[in-house]
Design a protein around this nucleic acid. Sequence first.
RNA 1: GCGGGUGUGGCGGAACGGUAGACGCCGGGGACUUAAAAUCCCCUGUCCCUUGGACGUGUGGGUUCGAUUCCCACCACCCGCACCA
Length: 841
Amino acid sequence: MTDQRFDPSSADGRWQRAWEVAGSFRADSDSNKPKSYVLEMFPYPSGRIHIGHVRNYTMGDVLARFKKLTGHEVLHPMGWDAFGMPAENAAMEKGVHPGGWTRANIEHMKAQLKRLGFALDWSRELATCEPEYYGHEQALFLKLHEAGLVYRKESEVNWDPVDMTVLANEQVIDGKGWRSGAEIEKRKLSQWFLRITQFADELLEGLSSLDTWPDKVRLMQENWIGKSKGLRCTFRLVDSDSGIEVFTTRPDTMFGASFVAIAPDHPLAQRMAATVPDLAAFVAECKKGGTTAAEIETQEKRGFNTGLSVSHPLESHWHLPVYVANFVLMDYGTGAIFGCPAHDQRDLDFARKYGLPVHRVVADGDETGEVFRGDEAYTGPGHIVNSRWLDGMTVDEAKAAVIARAEHEGWGKGETQWRLRDWGVSRQRYWGTPIPFIHCAACGIVPVPESQLPVVLPEDVDFKTPGNPLERHPTWKQVDCPGCGGSAQRETDTLDTFVDSSWYFLRFASQPTDKPFDRDEVAKWLPVEQYIGGVEHAILHLLYARFWTRALRHIGLIDLDEPFASLFTQGMVTHETYSRPQGGRDIWFGPEEVERTGHGATLRADGGPVTIGKVVKMSKSKKNVVDPDTIVDRFGADAVRWFMLSDSPPERDLPWSESGIEGCWRFVQRLWRLFAEHDTAATGEDKALDRKLHQTVDAVARDIEALAFNKAVARIYELTSAIEKAPPSASRSGAIRTLVQLVAPMMPHLAEEAWTNLGQQGLVAESDWPTVDPALLVEDEVTIAVQVKGKLRDTLTVAKGLSNTELEALALASDKVQRAIDGAEVRKVIVVPDRLVNIVA
RNA sequence: GCGGGUGUGGCGGAACGGUAGACGCCGGGGACUUAAAAUCCCCUGUCCCUUGGACGUGUGGGUUCGAUUCCCACCACCCGCACCA
């Protein structure tokens, strides 16, 4: 006799051990089954698993388990994106070592993941912070260097002048350092770059082959790469031989130009600043603040009139003033622009502020006057006006015409420009992959010989003072030059952690000790059939991984263009917030501190009311987090997994709720009763139930493959109700056995327990997905909607496949329809077979 | 500021241009019980002159016999913006 209730506290661990003993989720490279590589973005080991991880990994797990049931050899691995800033912050705040902290976090989080019963091949686990991983990364970096894809150049960082350290963008708050509170400055450093722009065209073209990626991600990447055709041309300085080189994507608006602006770090600005103190002060002022685009573009547009003038290339006696402006970026184009205020918002803001002329040169309607009014630039299509020989052309025609003339007259040429910039990978930090180069006074910058890899991080570092501990370490950076043998220094920059995550999916395919990956194993498993992670990675991580894959193919290490055949971006897990104003600001309470009471909520501690706030992403600062361990303790892994899959479509946010998880718990028990209490000896056929069963199996399979888990869940609820209501029969017994298999990918522990209790041999995780009889998928009756002038007036249940005339006659015979027509003349009847009749009267 | 997305009952959501609200949660009523828990059954978009009807998918327009779905404009919220991962 089975227990009355399903007890996850005993069943979960028992089945997790059974899978481990059976090696159910070991991926066998030599299997001749079709291969399926299911991958979720690996986590940063922050300390504890977040409920968002649980959602992400549950989705991948359902797919991986389903693939196994449908006859695939599945690779479903897990690892750790283990380098990064939080470990150094912990070291500074708590005095622990980043390595010890990270490894302890990994142990804890691994145990948390295991409790959820994920079908992972733990034999392939990796952590990017171990030399066994990053040593291979150093070797790859050196190979890319040999191929000319790695170089050094100057680039700006956020400099904290008090802590004397480089800050990440997130450490700059309102232009000030997060610890010191000092005003941040932009400072130039010589840094390492990867030549991603060499692949810009390929990365753009490749997007069209990724037709199972979300359109939004492809669009975002396309915009990020930002291919644009434009004109590079020279504006000659008046009374000088030299000029200012400008790049523009809008040569059509050239006659609307009213000024030229250069970046504060443009060579001309730098030269002039040396002799003009006011300009030097302005340039220094521009150095304040952070380096992010959002910050630069939202700050007030300011400029400094240099007093210089340039001639307009199309009209040499027409002179334009030259400004140094804080919104012009040295990194993009030539570091100089011409401003056409009427048709660019930034230029318009600037022109209004400095009283510069605003000429309309593109018109979309009757308004064609030269004087442009208002504070909203017109950037849409139209025809050119007030522009001499360009008048009447479309924007595109005018662009081509100006480029043609510039090339003919020799003052400029058409050019393709990319918004994408090369990837700066230098980080002035300890907890990352050391960049394997040596600085020698005699030989310059020399690669570490492959035989000396890995360059291992020193363990004995201190975090008491800010800055890079590698730089300060007493001995680590002192080495002999591999070239001349003289004394030299190691590079102390480490690699951006995005490098670590740009090839981990290759290392999962095989883990040889003498090389980063085995080419044949990569060929067997890659590309990843389904990659799942958050939208926040839509651009950077995914673009870098695509680039790295192409770069490795370029140097002949693999034969793969795109690493991820299909991509899915899941939504966040959210929760309502609880707060109470105190001392002029809100203080927040966690869900476990609060009692929900009908409409409101009270604080358990004092019984007083708290405000129920917005439903937002779970975060420590708002305290609206739930801990996966706690809920697994209370409800077991299956109820938690089921909740992760129910209700919300997987690409949308999922609001966590106490009542929701309780509902899932009740459903687990409801299934358990159904499995335990039914009459296994019953005989006889139940055609309607058979039909429902086969329709459900078919639909659930399609839903899982489309990752529409919420729909699969809804169908399983429907089938469960249908089985519960059906009288005992052989059909019903069969349906219950099949239902166990349907829920097995989602609630694997319950399913194993039930499978055994039903007398089935082996593990349900290793069984075969039920087959569908196509004959049972079709219904023989359909319900037809009958509308009069588009409004529903009646429904008819009729045999499937009636002709249009039969349906029309049946519809007109309806009393309700006749009442709605009310004697009016029937002008038209629209019939959609097996669906609807619409009478237009 | 720029790029991308989302918007449907009290809540999460479903719906090849064709019956809006499947399925779940909450709530209400009932059954069982000494009682509670658990479980089961029924009801549950709003409004009205309630055997019926009107309204209703962020807002305002448009296309169509018919629009949650397609087009245009707007509003609100969310994500990304190159050193958070």
